[in-house]
Amino acid sequence: MTESAGTPLEPLPGDWRRALAVVAHPDDLEYGCSAAVASWTDEGREVTYLLATRGEAGIDTLAPEECGALREREQRASAAEVGVERVEFLDHRDGVVEYGIPLRRDIAAAIRRHRPELVVTLNHRETWGSSGFWNTPDHVAVGRATLDAAADAGNRWIFPELAEQGLEPWDGVRWVAVAGSTTPTHAVDATAGLERAVRSLLAHRTYIEVLTDEDPEAYVRGFLTRSAEETGKRFGGRPAVAFELFPR
């Protein structure tokens, strides 16, 4: 438990039109926040997904070239379930993503290209809260780089080569929202989007069948429902998706 475990969560700000969600792997967003994404797209907001890898190292029985193509297809189908049409991949190598200048540049370029007001990413800390489970290096690297790239994107003297490529600075990111945080501050009502979130995660069926012997739909529905209900205890009793919000 964290110190803020009983603190009520505030509603995530709603005065924005475009979001860019940046994560390491296919399924990261579906485990983290797709019910919120479904609500946003219902409201007419634009959401784009950016993935650092294609998840090609995620299934032991499939060679990376086969696995990457399959997981890309599953990710595009998954995004469509929650109203996301644009899904981009950076092609960093799954499992060995490195925090550093190349990753920051790639994410800053995407921020300049899509010009979001809200950037979403996944837990960038070393562990998953009170569980004590160690986070993966890819999650840590991508989350950290995303927080930094939100500032990089607005500074014309950082990565000046991007402007030469036609990507002018974008200093319009107002918040970075981190899903799966150990210290959430805000939340989004998951009631309307939860059923589509289930379908969205279930679209990663090949990967899920490797993770569990449980029926895939029962596993997905149970996981997402429990998570939303637990978060809802700090959000007026409504099922919810939690975020740690960093204003800029």
Rank of each mutant, 00 (worst) to 15 (best):
Q75A: 13
P64V: 13
V84I: 05
R71F: 09
D27W: 02
C67G: 14
Y31V: 11
P64N: 10
D28I: 03
E56S: 04
A52Y: 06
R45G: 01
A24N: 01
I59L: 14
A52G: 05
A79R: 01
L50N: 05
G68D: 13
G55C: 08
E74F: 08
V37I: 15
L70I: 14
G68C: 11
D28E: 03
T53L: 07
V87N: 01
L70A: 12
R54M: 03
G83R: 11
G83T: 11
A57P: 00
A36H: 08
E66L: 15
E65T: 11
G32A: 14
E65H: 13
D28T: 01
V47F: 02
R54N: 13
G32P: 04
R86H: 09
C33Q: 09
A38Q: 05
L50G: 06
E66I: 15
R73W: 07
V84E: 03
A79V: 00
E81C: 15
Q75L: 06
V47K: 00
P26N: 07
G55M: 10
A80K: 14
R45N: 05
E30T: 05
E81S: 09
S78E: 02
E85A: 15
D27K: 01
L51K: 04
P64L: 08
P26H: 08
P64I: 13
